[in-house]
Design a protein around this nucleic acid. Structure first.
Lengths: 152, 152
DNA sequence: CAATTCGTTCAATATAAATTGAACATAAGG
DNA sequence: CCTTATGTTCAATTTATATTGAACGAATTG
């Protein structure tokens, strides 16, 4: 039987799954994040699978994804065989880095187009500048969110 | 037979389709944008369909989408029956508005969780604050990109 | 070394989303 | 009227992606 808090936790986890989905991440990744925001962990591999009721395959895929984008880290416990996972320090700066990479890519596309098109196409060049400026502006304004951390 | 410029245009349109996809928009929406960044337009409904080689149904759906998020506008020409479309002035500020709305939503989810969970869960509250702070930070840093425009 | 446990991989499946194309309503023209 | 052009809608299809579950290798245990 579930109390109010359990329901709230479940809702939060589920909603973070949806937020992740809106950000282009798999829903399960968001749920893993949600779980780890609520509870300190670290969580073992199989805890994640049973707690979120998803296959071990999905846990494997999604933990690796979250690892790769810097949200969680894999840790081990002395004497324990299983992998454990927990949220990293400063986990969200890397999300901004991901955004920046996509913006960088978009900038390059615009830049390439500018150079490949005739300079006489003045209006096209202008609109390309406008689009490129938009991407650059976003990059610049989100730059401060990337605080420098201890790079090991 | 295609010259270099045609190829460049085609590539740009296609790549903007992919950028749109990465942003959670349908690919065709990106292609419509790309076309309109290169050529002044306005484009008639059927021009879009034939030029991009997609069905009229798709044009209808995607032009309405782009209209709704403020990227393009529908215009008419005197004596002409068809709808025409072109890129709006300041089209990209509304993209930021869309981002802000998603961030706002995420903030609410975090806020709701904070209030529904026991205050004794100190670490959870901290991590929620961290997450919420991240969303708020992004909102604040992108705020300046929304320049005020003439609201008709 | 047999039996578990663990994490990964990958083909199969399920799920979600975009795209099409036919049917439709409206308006215009002849 | 009849025909044509226009844009929308929606069920069917296609396409893309996420998720599962079985098979596998490696490591551990008894």
């Amino acid at each position: 039987m579930e109390n109010n808090t359990d329901v709230a936790v479940e809702q939060f986890i589920e909603q973070l799954g949806l937020v992740a989905q809106a950000d282009g991440l798999p829903r399960i990744s968001g749920r893993i994040m949600g779980l780890m925001v609520i509870y300190s962990g670290p969580f073992s591999f199989s805890e994640l699978a049973s707690r979120l009721k998803v296959s071990r395959g999905s846990i494997s895929t999604n933990t690796r994804l979250l690892e790769s984008i810097g949200i969680i880290e894999r840790v081990t416990k002395p004497g324990k065989r299983q992998d454990y996972f927990r949220i990293r320090e400063n986990p969200y700066t890397d999300l901004v880095k991901g955004l920046q990479m996509r913006l960088e890519n978009a900038c390059k596309i615009v830049e390439t187009a500018k150079q490949s098109l005739p300079g006489e196409w003045v209006e096209a060049q202008e609109r390309l500048d406008e689009l490129g400026g938009f991407y650059k502006g976003l990059m610049k304004s989100t730059q401060p969110m990337i605080k420098d951390q201890n790079h090991k």
